[in-house]
Amino acid sequence: MTTPDHRPTPDYRLSQLETLEAESIHVIREVVAELERPVLLFSGGKDSIVMLELARKAFAPARIPFPVMHVDTGLNFPDVLQFRDRRVTELGVHLIVASVPEAIAQGTVKEEPNGSRNRIQTPVLLDAVEKHGFTALFGGARRDEDKARAKERVFSFRDEFGQWDPKNQRPELWDLYNGRIHLGESIRVFPLSNWTELDIWQYIAREQIAIPQLYLAAERDVVERQGMLYAVNEFITPREGEQIRREMVRYRTVGDANLTAAVPSTATTVEDVIAEISVTRMTERGATRGDDKVSDAAMEDRKKEGYF
């Protein structure tokens, strides 16, 4: 396996991965130093796995000094949930689960007619933040994912309703982050802002970070729906006229199991995945997410409502 050299170059330049790693660790430490009750959003997806690993490194040999939280839509891949629980146990961090099915049962949110729980997870997240009094929420979003994310600060100020105001963001200069808030307000913090999808995979390879098996190609039963391949599982059953076929596929993103499509792939190792991503001509969200196809500004609209 070819991985980048671990030693710094003689001219005292860090590699791109070392630079990004240092920047993220700086951000994570700054939050813990300046804000009282941080929490890290951990779904078991690749970005939050890398973020949690960076948090571990930021405070080693001490434990991560904040809990992690997962907004569970009830539509997660079982493989990912198992991974989540195992990782949390290994690190000795406290896991808080904010459950969308529970909120539906209690009547605080209503199921949307199209079956997507993307929007209704926002009020569940905001309720959990209020209940636990969290003032800083680490999210694994990257700026290369979406045009709205490309404009968001590393420290993203949210008002008492969790809303993002894209036209009135705090200027963010150098690495001098402003985490000051009034009671009820919070900061969403994105330590991976400057990472790209390729950086994430290269870092997973370099650091030999464990990931759920779904990210690697395997033969899976799939149906084709609106040009995308969906693996048949407890959330996806073939509709009339859809034929089940067996194909080598992997997941580029891991969202809700009823909405996340797989991509054709022969990548059975992390190195293979890196090779595939280097030549791919589709964005990861465009290739795999039914929920982002609503409009060109879907992400901006959701973020204004308090979404990550």
């Binding site: 980048p4 050299d5 590699s15």
Partner: peptide
């Protein structure tokens, strides 16, 4: 080219 893009040590 792809191997370089994917695996070479680069700076920012």
């Amino acid at each position: 080219d792809t191997a370089d893009l994917a695996f070479a040590r680069k700076d920012i």
